[in-house]
């Protein structure tokens, strides 16, 4: 942990070397997320509800997903550039250091500009916490925290999987963006609106629904099933297969060039 703080410090120092671009990018990240929010708002100007969910409820849903996604972009984006780490020999260097490889890849990049995205998420979260007609019991608040944490872990696991693929292809696969950015795009609405098949896929294949739809229904009081609040924790098990792929990748690692 102390080492991670050291990395954190050095990233912050590096980022502050270029003040102008640093702040400009933060603002643009905020604006990007903000336009999506506007999109939701305009749509609800025409419709009063989507699949039975009100405007405030959808904003809550989007805020939670965006928060999980933003956190994983902030801390786990090392995996997003992992193909270039292999290409330029940075991963060779990582292997020469007496620390865990995943830890080091994570430490190579802390993407501070994502703070803009997170800020937008916080604004929406506060807004919906206040406006949603929800009785905020302890267990409901805890569920929201679980959902955010679960989202963070799930998206990070997907980034890890994305990075691991680079071991086998040397270059990353854009296909994986479907499951990360695509999921953020679709995740702004409760997943049930996409129909039964989609929901099944998001429950058993890539467990987005476990961090989003099911616990959300518990938070909004649409179900009495208390165990729904623990589903985000189950979703974290998705890390295991991703980690196995990573291990296989490391053991087959070929390195490049001289």
């Amino acid at each position: 942990m102390k080492l991670y703080l050291k990395y954190f410090e050095i990233h912050l120092k590096s980022a502050m070397q270029f003040k102008g671009s640093f702040f400009a990018t933060i603002i643009s990240q905020f604006l990007t997320a903000f336009t999506v929010f506007l999109g939701i708002t305009f749509m609800f100007g025409r419709f009063n509800s989507v699949d039975g969910f009100t405007y405030e409820e959808v904003v809550l849903c989007y805020a939670i997903i965006l928060m999980g996604f933003g956190l994983s972009q902030l801390f786990a984006s090392g995996f997003k550039v992992f193909d270039s780490m292999i290409g330029n020999g940075q991963f060779d260097r990582i292997l020469c250091r007496p620390r865990n490889e995943i830890f080091q890849v994570l430490s190579q990049r802390i993407d501070f500009v994502r703070l803009g995205m997170l800020f937008q998420a916080v604004v929406m979260l506060v807004y919906s916490l206040v406006t949603c007609p929800v009785d905020w019991t302890f267990s409901r608040v805890l569920t929201v925290i679980f959902m955010i944490a679960g989202g963070f872990v799930l998206f990070s696991a997907l980034f890890l999987l994305d990075g691991s693929i680079a071991f086998f292809t040397i270059q990353g696969l854009e296909v994986m963006n479907v499951f990360t950015y695509g999921a953020l795009e679709h995740g702004k609405y409760p997943l049930s609106i996409y129909g039964r098949k989609m929901l099944t896929f998001c429950t058993f294949v890539i467990p987005y629904a476990l961090i989003q739809y099911y616990p959300l229904t518990y938070v909004l009081g649409r179900t009495e099933r208390l165990w729904y609040m623990f589903l985000p924790i189950i979703a974290c098990l998705f890390v295991v297969p991703c980690w196995i792929v990573w291990r296989i990748g490391v053991s087959r690692y070929k390195s490049t060039g001289s």
Partner: peptide, 22 residues
Amino acid sequence: QRSQLWWDVPVIDSFELLKEIY
């Protein structure tokens, strides 16, 4: 042909980081 130093910060900061890594 490859650097292990952090590009944008003073060299001493890279050294301090290595102190923690090892």
